[in-house]
Computed example of a mutant assay.
Amino acid sequence: MTAPPTLSLTVFVEGIGLVGPGLTSWIDGSDKLAGHAPYDSIPTVLPAPLSLPAAERRRAGAVIKVSLAVGQEAVNAAGLQASSLPSVFTSSGGDGVNCHDICSALASSDRLISPTRFHNSVHNAASGYWSISTGATPTSSVLCAHDGSFSAGLLEAITQAVVDNTPVLLVAYDTHYPEPLHSKRPIPDTLGVALVLSPQRSERSLARITLSGVDGLTSMAATTMGDAALEFLRQTIPAARALPLLELIARQQSATVALNYLDDLQLAVDVAPP
């Protein structure tokens, strides 16, 4: 038998968005990830989604606020039009607070669910609000792969960018669950990260990332963070599995990171300055 052909997919990171505990933006977060400023884990502060019409803004929960914030930051940094970008949205569970409120309503005596709660309960809610906010009409993929959701989204976005020869926006996000769901799914806070990935290098490029091998998968252990507080974030919020990748970009270092994906296989990503 002949060996399968080696597949290598390379894209360039054109813009990054980041919001999470103690991380107010990519500019703020990159300083902390690079070790230029201390990291303190304080509760996530979510900006109001001012790009939405007033009616939609009133309905927006944490998932919408964080995904729009990081998506717009990444697109602005890339100098591109959000309306023209295909997108990939990925989350391990969507809106935890909304899920809690629906479960509470179903457990009450009247069992009536607010139309707004139902409207926001679908897994593609963030993608829909992004389209409303930016006027984006290209294709949008919405994924969920439990704790491997960031890697699943990254793999999808890189593949789309290379195959379709176009920049693609990746948005990954997770929010906390209130009790009693929190005891079963203990995500402590909200975090979102967005990457604009392009098949071509530009003057704005921040890094070059490559998936090597047949499928990009590796049995090597997942890469961890040296800072204990950042490692806690990586372990407890699925979207924060992106932190080792972001740290290399912030430090402008070349290395291979293994990002959590499947139970016994990680996604191997080669990172280098552009």
Rank of each mutant, 00 (worst) to 15 (best):
H123Y: 10
S131Y: 09
L143C: 00
T137F: 07
T137G: 08
S141H: 15
S140R: 06
T134E: 01
N120H: 03
W130G: 14
P138H: 07
Y129N: 08
T137A: 15
S149L: 05
H119P: 00
A152G: 13
L143V: 05
G153M: 06
R117T: 09
S149H: 10
T134D: 04
A145Q: 15
D147H: 13
G153S: 07
Y129T: 03
H123G: 01
Y129R: 03
S133K: 09
G135I: 09
H119V: 06
T137S: 14
Y129E: 09
S141Y: 07
H146P: 02
A125N: 02
T139C: 05
F150Y: 14
S133P: 01
F150V: 11
A136N: 09
D147S: 14
T137W: 06
S121H: 14
S121F: 03
G135P: 13
G128W: 00
V142I: 11
V142P: 02
G148M: 06
S151I: 12
W130D: 14
S131E: 03
A152F: 10
A145N: 15
I132V: 15
A152W: 02
Y129V: 04
H146Q: 12
S140Y: 00
S149F: 08
Y129A: 07
S141C: 15
H146K: 06
A136K: 07
P138Q: 00
S121L: 07
S140P: 09
G153T: 07
L143A: 08
N120Q: 10
G135K: 11
G153I: 11
I132E: 02
A136M: 05
S133Y: 09
F150P: 09
T137K: 11
H146M: 08
V122Q: 08
S127W: 08
H123P: 15
F150N: 04
S133C: 06
D147N: 14
S141Q: 14
G135V: 10
H146Y: 05
Y129Q: 14
P138A: 06
H123C: 01
G153R: 04
H123V: 06
I132Y: 08
S131I: 02
C144A: 15
L143S: 07
L143R: 06
G148C: 09
F118Y: 14
C144L: 05
T139W: 00
W130H: 12
A126E: 12
R117Q: 15
S140V: 13
S121R: 01
C144D: 02
S133F: 10
G128L: 02
H123R: 01
